[in-house]
Every structure is written in C-alpha cells, then in structure tokens.
Design a binder for these strands. Structure first.
Lengths: 217, 217
DNA sequence: ATTATTAGTGAACAGTGTTTACTTTCTGAA
DNA sequence: TTCAGAAAGTAAACACTGTTCACTAATAAT
C-alpha cells in the first residue's frame, strides 16, 4: 500500500469535514445535542443542510465523533496523572478527581457520551469493541491503578480490581452527573455545609478511595 | 373555605387529567420522553392533540408530573427500609440498595428526573423549595441515616452527615445512571469478574458504606 | 332561557432530521 | 485536451415534532 494516501481532493474533503466538526463542537459545547440543528450548523459554515449528509450519514454519527474525541481528552488527562511516578496515596485520589474535573468541564459532552449508549452501538459487556473504545481505555487505567493499590498493600487484599473499578467508576460517574444535571450541586441547602465544587470533588474522591483502603485503625 | 371543593365538573376534569397521565405513563415507561409525542398520546385517549393543552400547559409540565410521582415511589420504598428498627449495619446498606433497585426499575423516569433539572425550576442549593421536593425528602432520609450512624459510632465521628450524604447520593446516582445508560453494566468484559446486577448493587452499596465506617482493624 | 364559561377541534406555524432528484464542479484516463 | 464518470452541492419535499389560534359544541350559572 502507498505510504500516505492523501490526494488533494481527499485533503480538501477532510478539511471541510473538520470544519463541520469544529463548528458543531462549539455549538454543542454551549447548547448540547438539542441546540445543535443541522440547519443551523449548515448556515454557520455556509452550506446547505443536505451538504452535511455528504460528510456524515446522520446527526448521530456527527455527534458520536464529538463524544469520542471528548472522551479521548478525558483519557489523556487521566493518563497524565496515572502514569506519574508519585506516591500512590494522593495519586489515586488525583486520578479520580481529574476525571471528574475534565468531565464536568464539558457537561453536554459527558452526558451525551453516556446517554446514547443503550440504543446505538453498545461498547459494553463481552462485545469485543470495548477495550478499543476511549471509554474502555479509561476504565482499564482505573482498573490497573486499583490493582497497583492492592499489590502495594494500600488497598484491601480481598479486592477484585475489575469489580472494584466498576464500583469506583460508578461513583465518579455519579458525581459528574450530579454536577452536570444540577449545576449548583455540592451546595444543597441541607444545614450548614455548603462546600465549593473543587473541594467537594476531592472530598468525594477521598471517600471513594477510603472504601478500598485497608483498615489501619 | 369549603371543606372539599369538588364539583361534578371538577371531578370529571380530574378524571380525564388522570387518564391522560396514565396513558402518558405507560408510553413513557417504555420509550421515554422522546417516544412520548403529544399526537400519539392524543390518539391513545381519543382526543385531539390540542385538547391536551387544556389540561397541561406543555409537554414538559406533563412529564414533570410523571417524574415527581415516580420519585415519590422511590421515597416510599426507601422510607420502608429506613424506618424499620433493624440493626443499623445492613439496614444502611439495604437503604442504598433499595434506592438503586427502584430507580433502575424505571430507567426513563429516573434519567428524566435529573435531566430536566438545569433548565427548568431548580430545586437545589439555597432555593427554599428543595426540602418539599420528593427528591429533597429522599436526601433528608439519607442524611438522617448517616447522622444516626455517626451517633451510634458505626461511622467515623469526623463525618459531616450533610456533606457525606451528598457524596453517598452521588455514588448511588452513579450506579443507577450506569445501569440506565448501559443496560448490561455490571458485566463489562474486563477480565474474569462478571457479576449479576443484584449482587453488584449490594457490592457497590457495601463499598460506599465502608468509606464511612470507623476503622476496626 | 340566556349568558358566560369551559371542553374540544382542525388547521396552521415554526421547527426538526432526512431523502430525492437535480445541477454543478472537479478528477482521471484516452 | 477532450470527455466520461464520480463527487460536491443544492432546492424542495417528506414525515415528524410541540404549540397556538380561531372556532364550534357542550355545559354551568344567573
């Protein structure tokens, strides 16, 4: 095969495709999937609505690309923390907190990345595609980190990393969704405690990790 | 004021209103908010689409009622467990597990109950409406239970119930959303462990509670 | 019995994603 | 360079959506 298949036509095509995605990205970040209409998008890039269908077979497919590249952003950020050779305690917590921070930074992206799962192609369970998914990779980072914690004796020895990773992931996912859906979340009325978001993210990550730590009372 | 204001006309009106809600409920439970169209609904109950607007000012308002009465169902079930005078350990876990079980029983309801929050009336933060909300009441049950745990010495004494309740709620919310969005959730490919949903719910609730327990090593 | 209120409707408005038939533009080979 | 064929781009329509408006029919109140 040829080294780099890129005819001038093909490059121009990719450029326009990228321009569509870029325009879609900025609208989607601000207003989500419902605010992003094909007609509005077409107007933004000075094309007819039908033209977009020469580059994307459906709106869903277009949005899917936005979601995937967003989860790559999460993955990159988490990787940055996970790979750093710093003390395990603290690193683990920062890893979880980073996931939440980056995720809540683009609420619509994160919510959409999970919302369209059940109907569209499900990258879960035994389907072989999962580990290739950015989401799947992020999960693996988490599982490996927990495994490290068990091996080094920071976490209880009876913990199954694959199982615990799912539980921890769910807990992280929960806080993200709370913040996404209820923008003022950490500050519920409930009595005295109204904590800043940043602080609360750390608090939550801490509590989740404590659930795995060995009892050193 | 009169004791019970119910003219025959008014009763007939409420009956039709209930019939609309009932028809909406069954469609919504199966297909969610997007599957529930005013036209379809109108056809189901043999009215014109416009007629529905004599009973509900918008589709959102109609769906809001479905969501609220659903969260009342959750609240009732959780109350049933929380009030029972059984040993605290176990009761706390069952309380969390029940929330997840009932919530995942009607995935569309639960997801919608949180999805529409940011734009519509926000029952959060210092807004005084929150504690009247079913959601707010459910939160209070959780907070009180944690407070009980701290008082009885089951949980660490440095735990602020209001704060911890938010963290725990987020963790519960997370697993529900995971199951809702990824129907096969607990069983990801990831190595050996593929646990049944029921088992995993208990496992998760357990891990979350462990994060609050006092170290008795 | 007459008036006023409410229940109910058909048709339209302004949107949406998508498809189809059509024209224009560009590319690759004779 | 010419010419067939593919690709890019479009206007118009289809089948939906939630919602509103002017209107009629039925009911309740005076």
């Amino acid at each position: 095969m040829t080294v780099a298949t890129s005819s001038p036509a093909e490059r121009r095509r990719n450029k326009i495709r990228a321009r569509i995605l870029s325009a879609a990205e900025s609208v989607f970040a601000r207003e989500g999937a419902e605010g992003l209409s094909i007609r509005r998008l077409a107007e933004n890039i000075d094309y007819s609505p039908a033209a977009i269908y020469k580059y994307f077979s459906s709106k869903d497919e277009l949005v899917d690309e936005l979601k995937e590249s967003f989860f790559e952003l999460i993955l990159q950020n988490v990787h940055l923390i996970a790979d750093r050779s710093t003390p395990f305690a603290g690193r683990a917590r920062e890893c979880l907190a980073t996931y939440i921070r980056v995720a809540t930074d683009k609420p619509y992206h994160y919510a959409a990345a999970f919302a369209g799962e059940s109907t569209s192609s499900g990258p879960v369970d035994t389907e072989p595609g999962f580990e290739v998914t950015k989401k799947g990779q992020a999960f693996n980072v988490l599982r490996n980190m927990i495994a490290e914690g068990v091996e080094t004796g920071a976490f209880r020895s009876d913990i199954d990393p694959s199982l615990a990773a799912k539980s921890v992931w769910a807990s992280m996912h929960g806080l993200v969704m709370m913040i996404v859906h209820i923008p003022t979340f950490p500050a519920l009325k409930s009595g005295q405690a109204a904590m800043a978001r940043e602080e609360f993210i750390e608090y939550h990550a801490d509590q989740v990790i404590r659930g795995m730590e060995v009892n050193h009372g």
